[in-house]
């Protein structure tokens, strides 16, 4: 369980993280999103105890990070943006050091190391110096370090950077698997990755929490405008007129790439599709197909960030 209460980090007069509060109780994969400079890395550094907050509380599995940092840190595995690996060590030596620093009992250490090396596919490289490994392998050594000792909370900052497509798929499935028994917080700029892996999404902007919801709810949110695609036969002007005059349709236009295809937008609480069906029927313009286009996470992310920018600018004015 992670609980963050009124977390703030202030540099001079700049609020990198501003009164951030959230609680994650059950095991799942959390996508942590935000534009550059939103305070993602600062927040993750504070949660993992690498950086002291200006104010606020961080509670990991019931242990307060500011009161018992060593105890709290035992429950966290963290992969920072740049994997913190020693170039002059081999992965095996490196993981032995991390394991002993995490106070894993000696008897279990080797078993644990073998397990994480197998999961991250670095067993073949275990005796090579890390400085001779490719970027992808270094990243995997970093992931192995984070999951070593099976901590209940795992925080990964852009874990798939530098990996080849096959490795990306492997790491994604590993993250999904980890999400069954751990709380995994995953920060990434690749939104398709977040929507493929995460069950929950948290978006921050200007150091403030903007959205914390399940991916399903977010993509199919009742408050967001829906886009639908319509294929109908008939005169273009006539079809566009029907679309624009029907109650509920907020905007409509012809999709220039396809001959008989039109795009229209509406709010979910005022769904015009039934009315449209009868209107087209009366006008003798046969409807071939009509369906709601699912919004991608990119669209939702941009929309939410834009909204938060507007609110901030409005507030400042």
């Amino acid at each position: 369980m992670i609980e963050v209460k009124n977390l703030s980090k202030i540099y001079g007069t700049f609020h990198a993280v501003d009164n951030l509060s959230f609680k994650i109780e059950r095991n799942c994969v959390f996508g942590f999103l935000g534009p550059n400079g939103a305070g993602k890395s600062t927040t993750m550094n504070m949660i993992t105890g690498c950086l002291a907050p200006t104010k606020g509380e961080i509670i990991i599995n019931g242990i307060d990070m500011s009161l018992k940092p060593e105890e709290a840190k035992k429950n966290i595995g963290y992969l920072p943006e740049i994997p913190p690996v020693y170039d002059d060590f081999t992965p095996l030596e490196y993981l032995r050091f991390v394991g002993s620093a995490k106070k894993i009992p000696k008897k279990e250490l080797q078993k644990n190391i073998d397990y994480v090396m197998e999961k991250t596919n670095i067993t073949v490289m275990k005796n090579r110096l890390i400085k001779n490994l490719s970027k992808g392998y270094r990243q995997r050594v970093g992931i192995a370090q984070a999951i070593l000792g099976n901590p209940p909370v795992i925080i990964l900052d852009e874990p798939t950077v530098g990996l080849d497509p096959e490795q990306i798929i492997e790491i994604r499935s590993l993250i999904k698997e980890l999400g069954k028994n751990h709380i995994v917080i995953l920060s990434s700029h690749i939104l398709s990755e977040i929507s493929a892996v995460c069950n929950n999404i948290m978006i921050i902007s200007h150091g403030r929490l903007v959205v914390l919801d399940t991916a399903e709810n977010l993509i199919g949110n009742e408050k967001t405008e829906k886009t639908a695609e319509l294929e109908a036969k008939g005169e273009r002007e006539k079809i566009l007129e029907i679309l624009k005059n029907t109650d509920g349709v907020t905007s409509a236009f012809w999709d220039k790439e396809k001959e008989n295809t039109y795009i229209f937008k509406f709010m979910p609480q005022n769904d015009p599709r039934e009315k449209l069906f009868y209107s087209f029927s009366r006008a003798q313009c046969p409807v071939i197909s009509m369906f709601i286009k699912k919004s991608s996470l990119e669209e939702i992310f941009l929309e939410i960030i834009q909204e938060s920018e507007n609110t901030k600018t409005g507030g400042e004015n």
């Binding site: 690498c50 060593e70 105890e71 840190k73 963290y78 913190p84 020693y86 991390v98 620093a101 370090q145």
Partner: peptide, 14 residues
């Protein structure tokens, strides 16, 4: 320089 100071900060060692 190598950013391994972060590793030392996140490990349960004071």
């Amino acid at each position: 320089k190598q950013k391994t100071d972060k590793l030392l900060s996140l490990l349960p060692i004071d």
